[in-house]
Design a protein around this nucleic acid. Structure first.
Length: 487
RNA sequence: GCCCUCAUCGUCUAGCGGCCCAGGACACCGCUCUUUCACAGCGGCAGCACGGGUUCGAAUCCCGUUGGGGGCACCA
């Protein structure tokens, strides 16, 4: 069992593409087969090294490892198509010599013109005009200075594909035009290079997006030729994964922000959550469970269980699944994952100081049930990391304060200033007696002003624990500051 | 236009002829817990696109209609 993942390095990693990688990976790991990683960089104009690096980084982030590929090597190296030109040129020559392909001289304009002249739809595609030219005609084109492309001859029978997720698919004879595999300038195209490498690399199962279903008959025809020429053992089995759709019911395109893997990482999706949600798009572990680990995915995965209908990307569900994974993390692991987000929010400069680390270790367990994505961390934890004088009290928190807020703050300050023990329980007891009992304010309203004073927000980690972590000095300063602000 | 494909709650899905007057999850709405927000728990809302067959029996099989998606490059 050999599967492959073969992106072209253009742009930033796309979630649909990474999902295809994930399914291939899961299938390989489930069956004990091999995952081959190959770079389809035959389009020099669009390919970039940055994109290549980004894909490698994305795979690593998701925990998708491969058995062969650039960087790790393997029996079929090199794994970058830009380094395999000789092979393709050789195969192209043989295809031509053995009659599977032919030289084609027509320009697209000429093809259209012929269709029009014959009263056919001009958008029908290539018409097979050059299939059986005489030597004289060929010479005439040569004399004009034309350079031919190489086209593969499609058979006159239907092409059948037994798709692993869709079953039997039949493409009627004549519905797929002869296709170009080598440009006039001699450059091989994806249409050649992809099947050739799959064949030569011994790929047994091709799992890819449904957008490639219509190109499958061409690849099957080419594969058959390769088998007949003795270059390949088999035509691989194909399985076409349902597309991932965006908001407007369209294929998730590179334009859509949800398609960008790294944007999700910045937003704070965990790789565990991402893997889980991606797998859920077209596959399910069990009728009554949709939160699962990478290991459970591998243990249960089978291509045959992939659904055939397109799936819409649902950010809310992705984040809900992510929240569950977030809660499954050990607190110290969550703390580590949070660090980059605290840095990019400007709350941390490099590694946390011992004091900051102590505060975070105390606070992370308190916020773990309060987050869906890591980028919520800075908002939740920021009050612990900023200096007292830099604490910004947010507008909505200020607006929610009721008239008795000043009294509450005064009573609280008085109760806390000489408190013998400074821990959550003692703080709570003191505040309850001073504010709830003393002032007769309902608990629901008693602690809002304090929360605002200390954290600057309406929503925060549990108040008494927060006060304990912050310490008496900071707490008193912040209460006094808000009290002054209230006049 | 041509070819391919898909069709169960708003969304992701379970269901592969009787176990289904359709199960789970997200979202949404209540309630409980509660110092806020969450988490957790409980409850609610909501679906087999339509029409024909086949069958004792259909969400499940077949045909058609409608609707959605994808593809039709000297891109990948």
């Amino acid at each position: 069992m050999r599967v492959r993942f073969c992106p072209s390095p253009t742009g930033t990693p796309h979630v649909g593409v990474m999902r295809a990688a994930l399914f291939n990976w899961a299938y390989a790991r489930h069956t004990g087969g091999k995952l081959v990683f190959r770079i389809e960089d035959t389009d020099a104009a669009r390919d970039s090294q940055e994109s290549m690096d980004a894909i490698v980084e994305g795979l690593a982030w998701l925990g998708i490892d491969y058995d062969e590929g650039p960087g790790v090597g393997g029996p079929h190296a090199p794994y970058r198509q830009s380094e395999r030109r000789d092979l393709y040129a050789d195969v192209a020559r043989r295809l031509l010599a053995e009659g599977y392909a032919y030289e084609s001289w027509s320009t697209p304009e000429e093809v259209e013109e012929r269709h029009r002249a014959a009263g056919r739809d001009p958008k029908l595609g290539y018409d097979g005009f050059d299939r059986d030219l005489s030597a004289a005609q060929v010479q005439a084109f040569r004399d004009e200075g034309r350079e031919p492309v190489l086209r593969v001859r499609m058979p006159d029978e239907d092409v059948e594909v037994d798709d692993l997720v869709r079953g039997r698919v039949v493409f009627p004879a004549g519905s797929v035009p002869d296709f170009v595999v080598v440009r006039a300038n001699g450059q091989p195209l994806y249409t050649l290079v992809n099947p050739v490498d799959d064949a030569v690399m011994g790929i047994t199962h091709v799992l890819r997006g449904e957008d490639l279903l219509s190109s499958t008959p061409r690849q099957v025809v080419l594969h058959r030729a390769l088998v007949e020429m003795g270059l390949s053992q088999r035509v691989p089995q194909f399985g076409h994964l349902p597309l991932v759709l965006g908001e407007g019911n369209r294929k998730l395109s590179k334009r859509d922000p949800e398609s960008d893997l790294f944007l999700h990482r910045e937003r704070g999706l965990l790789p565990e959550g991402m893997v889980n949600y991606l797998a859920l798009l077209g596959w399910s572990l069990a009728p009554d469970r949709d939160v699962f680990t990478r290991e459970e995915l591998v243990a249960a995965f089978d291509v045959r269980d992939i659904g055939a209908n397109p799936a819409r990307w649902d950010q809310k569900k992705a984040e809900a699944i992510n929240g569950d994974h977030l809660r499954m993390l050990a607190p110290e692991v969550l703390l580590d994952r949070l660090l980059p987000h605290l840095r990019s929010a400007g709350l941390l400069d490099g590694d946390p100081t011992p004091t900051q680390r102590r505060l975070l270790e105390g606070a992370v367990p308190l916020v773990q049930t309060r987050m869906g994505v890591l980028s919520e961390g800075p908002g939740m934890l920021g009050f612990l990391l900023v200096a007292d004088e830099d604490l910004v009290v947010e507008e909505d928190a200020l607006g929610a304060l009721r008239p008795e807020a000043a009294d509450v703050l005064d009573a609280s300050a008085a109760a806390l200033v000489d408190l013998p023990e400074w821990d959550a329980a003692a703080v709570e007891a003191a505040l309850r007696s001073a504010v709830v009992d003393g002032l007769g304010v309902k608990p629901k309203f008693a602690f809002g002003p304090l929360r605002t004073a200390v954290t600057g927000r309406r929503v925060s980690p549990p108040l008494f624990e927060s006060l304990e972590l912050l310490g008496r000095e900071s707490s008193m300063l912040r209460i006094a500051a808000l009290r002054r602000q209230l006049g």
